[in-house]
C-alpha cells in the first residue's frame, strides 16, 4: 500500500505548491489525480517518485519511507524522454542493466512484442512517431516490474485517436502484473476511463478537494449513460474545486482521517 501522510511542499521562492495531502492507495488500484492548473498534481507525483523531497509529511510504500527514487516505483513523463543515442530496444532495457544480458534481452523482446513495436527494436527514437515513442517509454517503465507506476499527463501531447489507443493499451499492460497506477491528468474522459478512484485537487495551495469512486466494470464503454454520469460528477466536482466560494471540506486534516467518507 502507498500511503501519503500530510505531504506538503513549499518551494524556495515561498510558493506553497502542496498542503497536507493525505491519501492511501491500495496495491493494484488505479487512481487518477485531476485538478486545475497549479494545483500541485505534478509536485505530488514527483514527491511520490522521490524526485523531489516533500517539505513535510511522508510518502511510504509498504511501510518504507520514500525520499529518493525507488526500485519499486516507475514513472512515465509527459514527454517520452527516450535516450536519443540508444536504440528502441536498448531504451527499453535501460533499467535492467543489473540483469545478465540474456535475461535482459529476453525481457526486452517480450516487452517490445507486448507494445507492438517488435519491428522497431533497432530503430532510433527519433524515427518513432509520438505515440510509438510514448509506448516505448511505457515499456521502459514497466519492464523492471514496478509495484507503483506514476504517470504525469502521459498522453496529453498526443492526438485524440492515439491517446485513446494508448489508454486502452495501458490498461491491457496493467492487467499483466497489476501494479498500482497513479495518473495525473487534466482530461476528465481519461480519468473516468482508467481510474478506480478519482482524486480532485484544488489549487493555491494544492490540496485534496474530493474523491470519486468510479464503480464501473472493465472494459468501459465510453458511450454508456453510466460513463456519462461519472464524467459529469467528476466535472461538477472539478468546477466546485475551482469555485472559491465553496469551502474546503475538512477532509485532509489530521492522521487517520484520510479516508473521511
Amino acid at each position: 500500500m502507498l500511503a501519503l501522510d500530510r505531504v506538503s511542499k513549499t518551494y524556495p521562492n515561498g510558493v506553497q505548491a502542496l498542503a497536507r495531502f493525505s491519501a492511501e492507495i491500495r496495491q493494484g488500484e488505479i487512481v487518477a489525480i485531476i485538478g486545475g492548473s497549479g494545483c500541485g498534481k505534478s509536485t505530488l507525483l514527483r514527491a511520490i517518485a522521490g524526485l523531489d523531497r516533500a517539505s513535510s509529511g511522508t510518502v511510504t510504500l509498504d511501510n518504507e519511507a520514500i525520499s529518493s527514487p525507488h526500485a519499486k516505483i516507475g514513472i512515465i513523463f509527459q514527454e517520452p524522454r527516450l535516450l536519443p543515442w540508444l536504440s528502441v530496444a536498448d531504451n527499453i532495457g535501460f533499467g535492467l542493466a543489473d540483469l545478465p544480458a540474456a535475461e535482459r534481452r529476453e525481457k526486452v523482446v517480450r516487452a517490445l512484442e507486448r507494445v507492438g513495436l517488435a519491428e522497431k527494436a533497432q530503430a532510433w527514437p527519433r524515427e518513432l512517431s509520438g505515440g510509438q515513442a510514448q509506448r516505448v517509454a511505457i515499456a521502459r517503465a514497466l519492464v523492471p516490474q514496478p509495484e507503483v507506476l506514476l504517470l504525469d499527463e502521459p498522453f496529453s501531447a498526443l492526438d485524440a485517436f492515439t491517446r485513446r489507443d494508448l489508454q486502452d493499451h495501458l490498461l491491457d499492460l496493467w492487467a499483466d502484473t497489476r501494479p498500482t497506477l497513479i495518473l495525473v491528468t487534466h482530461d476528465v474522459d481519461e480519468a473516468v476511463v482508467l481510474a478506480d478512484r478519482v482524486l480532485v485537487m484544488r489549487p493555491r495551495p494544492g490540496r485534496l478537494f474530493d474523491q470519486i469512486e468510479i464503480n464501473l466494470g472493465r472494459p468501459r464503454d465510453r458511450n454508456s449513460p453510466l460513463f456519462e454520469t461519472f464524467k459529469r460528477s467528476v466535472l461538477t466536482s472539478l468546477d466546485r474545486s475551482l469555485d472559491r466560494s465553496v469551502p474546503d471540506r475538512d477532509a485532509t486534516q489530521g492522521p487517520g482521517q484520510a479516508m473521511w467518507w
Binding site: R114, V115, G116, L117, S129, G130, G131, Q132, T162, D165, D168, H169, D172
Partner: peptide, 12 residues
C-alpha cells in the same frame, strides 16, 4: 487495443 498498432504505425 494492441491490434490497432499497425494502423497507427502506418499513419505515422
Amino acid at each position: 487495443m494492441i491490434s490497432d498498432a499497425p494502423v497507427l504505425q502506418q499513419a505515422s
